[in-house]
């Protein structure tokens, strides 16, 4: 305890001669003016290329809130936005379960949406980049939670189908600052592709639930 204190005191003396130490290892607080600066800097120092246009640097209400609050906005900020986003999701009529086999191919594919991708290529869902799903695929990421047995645990009720479809379409409806991309909202995946992924997650015959 005493030793630690002495060490700290020594450091303080050392830096007193020059400028204050830089806030290494910290997460900066972002004020509205900082956010304006960051948007301006990104618009100045990035350029449109291929399918990646400058519109991608615009922040909508959700991303503004998340950037301003270090991904942890107070409930009174996040709740109304989440409700608003949920209402904006265009849920298709009828069953939301597509073809799990097509869904599996989408879950595996990580292509699409980069400036080096040609327009009109078949985008993937990049699911395995971050999630564990089928036990047969051992090369999975861990940034997202494991989705192993996703449907086995939850069943295939209409409510679960809607939640699954909605989460893939726009994850921010359920958790405003979720790190998961908004696959439908960003036009990465279309309605049928999201249905196929919903089936991959929920269908009892899908390897995800075996």
């Amino acid at each position: 305890m005493t030793k630690n204190f002495l060490l700290l005191a020594g450091t303080a003396v050392l830096v007193a001669g020059c400028a204050a130490p830089l806030p290494v290892g910290e997460r900066p607080k972002i004020a509205a003016s900082d956010l304006d600066q960051l948007v301006a800097v990104s618009k100045r120092d990035f350029k449109a290329r291929g399918i990646a246009g400058m519109d991608r640097l615009e922040l909508d209400a959700a991303m503004r809130a998340c950037n301003l609050h270090n991904d942890n906005p107070p409930r009174e900020v996040s709740q109304p936005l989440e409700e608003q986003i949920l209402k904006s999701i265009p849920f298709p009529q009828g069953s939301l379960l597509g073809d799990w086999k097509r869904g599996q191919r989408l879950a595996q594919s990580g292509q699409g949406m980069t400036w080096s991708d040609k327009p009109n290529i078949a985008n993937g869902g990049s699911c395995y980049n971050c999630h564990q799903l089928s036990p047969q695929e051992e090369s999975f990421g861990t940034l997202g939670t494991s989705l192993r047995n996703f449907g086995k645990i939850r069943g295939t009720s209409e409510a679960i189908q809607r939640y699954t479809y909605g989460k893939i379409y726009n994850s921010k409806a359920y958790n405003l600052c979720s790190q998961m991309p908004r696959m439908g909202h960003s036009k990465t995946l279309n309605e049928q592709q999201i249905k196929d992924l919903t089936a991959y997650l929920l269908d009892p015959n899908s390897p995800v639930n075996k």
């Binding site: 830089l22 806030p23 910290e26 997460r27 900066p28 972002i30 900082d34 600066q37 960051l38 948007v39 800097v41 990104s42 990646a52 991608r56 640097l57 615009e58 922040l59 991303m63 998340c66 950037n67 270090n70 991904d71 949406m113 921010k172 790190q179 991309p181 908004r182 960003s186 990465t188």
Partner: peptide, 15 residues
């Protein structure tokens, strides 16, 4: 300081 803020700045098609 700018780099530190940019590091945490979410944007792009996938946020």
């Amino acid at each position: 300081e700018l780099g530190q803020k940019l590091f945490f700045h979410r944007a792009g098609a996938w946020d």
